[in-house]
Design a protein around this nucleic acid. Structure first.
Lengths: 354, 354
DNA sequence: TTGAAAGCGCTAACAC
DNA sequence: GTGTTAGCGCTTTCAA
């Protein structure tokens, strides 16, 4: 009556014995490699079923020299930006017969290197790396032994990896231009991690537009890419809050942390200071005022990356680099009317009845 | 000059040849199994280094019959509740020498079963299942062949799995009692997925308190455990919003979606309707008004689960079942003063100067 | 259509 | 202290 815990999982040999054939035949039948008698086929299938047989993936991988596993490395799984990418990647990987191994490196370059090593030990068929934090040289060395690599938001010699980049620069330029047209002049950049490639792109966008208008950043403050980062930035900014018009944030988490602090400090958003995020995570539209941000099609990004990776694994290196454009989502942390200047908005608010 | 892509990864044999010893010696040195000459040791290490040798995890696993990999299955990686659990689990797994394979089943029981099979093929040493959606019989059958299993928020015969459960019932009872003391009488339960074990616990909590007061639920509406679920519930509730005092939500995501819709419909929270969430995800404290919720120590939960799993893998089944208590986090979607009745609050608000 | 042998990379057991 | 042999579970090659 008692179901005994399986002391040893059944092997091809067990199935073969049960079906009265050779292990080879079992393998053939189970892998649909044709060439197997109808009757034999039935017996094998039956035996496998009865024994609850499951092929040992190690043995298969060892023999075939492929694991049907791919890895994806993200800086922080708790940052809502990344789970969507993972989900997208998984959506493509599974139907293609691949298992996805997702690894979280908690924003630590050492860990990133270590994880790439572990994935190598596990002989993954390929890896997607999101926002790699390693410096160029170490990154190249770490990915070089891998069979196939796709980098998200990081460029690299095409020889070593396919790339998918978000055109943050263009996105940021669009918002900053708009804010300048609305009369904002004194900008702050809440920069996120210093070593971020995407962070540099965003900065370039801000600075390009500013310098076109003879302006430059009032502050450029690095911070962790999470709520706490936004809180830290707020602390830095509060003493001189009267001297700034707008804060461009590395991501929504920072923007949200910042907003909360500004709200508590009585700093009016967007009337006194405009705030712009990046990513468009769900919380961005839930807060008050809802956050103006750059939307990235996160799940699509994951899907594209995985498709590119599978292509590379299969040896068809069709697409080498893709750039995707973010959408500017105008919500209420930036002034509503592009024609109306900052000063006007302030005056009008002061004159409003309630 | 050109770095050639590795056509074949180096093996013990390669290292052995380079060091002028036998493969066995290489294995011994690299695994620190003592018994190896100082000089030999040095040579082997050098050779391994030079060739950039990395042991093939398959071959090791095949031989040792253990993969040093553990799996964790979550219903939806995009739900912010789960990434924190995964991170906690990983924090414990990695130092112990285990790689964590996290799998997302997008709230689909079929996928859950399939994934348990895949993990079996990969011969993981153990699995943690979060909020298993499978029915009892299929769940038991699916976990039975696994070496070690820990279930989060799901009970099971101790024989087959360790369990960690959140005492949702107690948590919910605490809020509901409080709301009743504040004069709320007409409760709605936004129930989440019908097949959720945790959902049943929460419902028991609500109903226990209500019946103690001679009350019963006005509505019990199932929904998906995400923002959309909350939006759907709002649509269901809006026509009769005047007839309800409080909505107890399965999780924060639902509560947040609901709040947003209520806000747009001009339904005052908490004055007209109180809202309670569950989980305490970061967004809960960011919205206005901030959400009253039950806080679960998510990362701790992940850490505990992983520790329990590793214990089970090692054969020390010390702890079989753990129950953790949620903390009631009172924020502003429920009335502030327990002594003040609903009616009072409403009157006072109406009389307020602004 | 089916089977026998050999080997993927590694290590436990047993020599020497 | 070090090497030899054998085998983990599977599948490719070649033969029957």
């Amino acid at each position: 009556m008692d179901v005994k815990p399986p002391l040893r999982a059944p092997t091809v040999t067990d199935v073969a014995a049960a079906a009265g054939v050779s292990p080879m035949t079992v393998s053939r039948v189970l892998n649909g490699r044709g060439g197997a008698g109808e009757e034999t086929r039935r017996r094998v299938l039956e035996a496998a079923q009865a024994l609850n047989y499951r092929p040992n993936a190690f043995a298969q991988s060892l023999k075939n020299d492929r694991s049907n596993t791919v890895g994806i490395i993200v800086p922080d799984i708790v940052n809502p930006f990344f789970p969507e990418i993972i989900r997208g990647a998984e959506l493509v990987a599974r139907p293609a017969g691949y298992t996805l191994l997702s690894c979280n490196v908690v924003e630590d370059p050492e860990r990133e290197e270590e994880v790439l090593g572990t994935l190598l030990d596990k002989r993954v068929d390929g890896v997607i790396i999101c926002s790699a934090r390693l410096d160029e040289e170490r990154l190249l060395r770490a990915i070089q032994p891998h069979r196939a690599v796709v980098l998200i938001n990081r460029s690299a010699a095409k020889r070593f990896a396919g790339t998918i980049e978000v055109d943050y620069r263009a996105g940021v330029e669009a918002v900053v231009s708009r804010l300048i047209a609305q009369g904002r002049r004194r900008f702050v950049f809440a920069a996120g991690p210093a070593y971020s490639h995407g962070g540099r792109k965003r900065r370039e966008g801000v600075e390009a537009v500013l310098s076109r208008h003879g302006l430059s950043l009032v502050h450029d403050v690095p911070c962790t890419p999470d709520l706490q980062g936004g809180i830290d930035v707020a602390a830095r900014l509060k003493p001189s809050a009267a001297e700034i018009d707008a804060v461009i944030c590395y991501n929504d988490l920072i923007a949200l942390g910042l907003m909360k602090q500004f709200e508590m400090a009585g700093i009016a958003v967007p009337d006194q200071v405009a705030i712009v995020g990046c990513d468009d995570i769900p919380a961005a539209s839930l807060v008050s005022p809802p956050l103006t941000t750059l939307r990235i099609a996160k799940q699509d990004l994951g899907e594209m990356a995985m498709r590119m990776l599978l292509d590379r694994i299969a040896g068809r290196n069709a697409q080498q680099g893709i750039v995707i454009e973010p959408d500017l989502i105008l919500r209420a942390t930036t002034p509503a009317d592009a024609a109306q200047s900052h000063a006007d908005a302030t005056r009008e608010r002061a004159a409003a009845p309630i």
